[in-house]
């Protein structure tokens, strides 16, 4: 939902739900995902509804994603880094192996 005004000059590459993403070094993960056409970051825990960042400043907790296997990370407060494996989340956190 975001369009960059400038070309990326110092790229970092990572994946979101197995899709390759390129961002500018220093971008927050949430902004980088929005600028790569990612619309839905997760599905809500209670009602299973699509959600995406609302505030981009650490307040709303709508931008939660799984980063390198760690679930429910606030993507607006972390930097996009090379090789990150980012996944969207459906519903509540899983704690038992094999739950997904």
């Amino acid at each position: 939902m975001l369009r960059r005004l400038c070309e990326i000059t110092d790229p970092v590459r990572f994946s979101f739900d197995n899709r390759p993403i390129t961002a500018e070094r220093g971008d927050t993960l949430a902004a980088a995902l929005l600028a790569s056409g990612v619309e839905t970051f997760r599905h809500s825990v209670v009602g299973d509804q699509p959600r995406a960042p609302y505030c981009l400043m650490g307040v709303c907790f709508e931008c939660l994603v799984t980063v390198d296997g760690v679930q429910n990370q606030q993507s607006c407060l972390m930097e996009a880094r090379d090789g990150m494996v980012v996944e969207s989340r459906r519903g509540g956190r899983q704690v038992l192996q094999g739950q997904s």
């Binding site: 825990v45 429910n72 509540g92 956190r93 899983q94 704690v95 038992l96 739950q99």
Partner: peptide, 14 residues
Amino acid sequence: SKGQILVTEKCAPF
């Protein structure tokens, strides 16, 4: 008698 409790985010039933 003061008690204290922690609560986690929601997770799948375990």
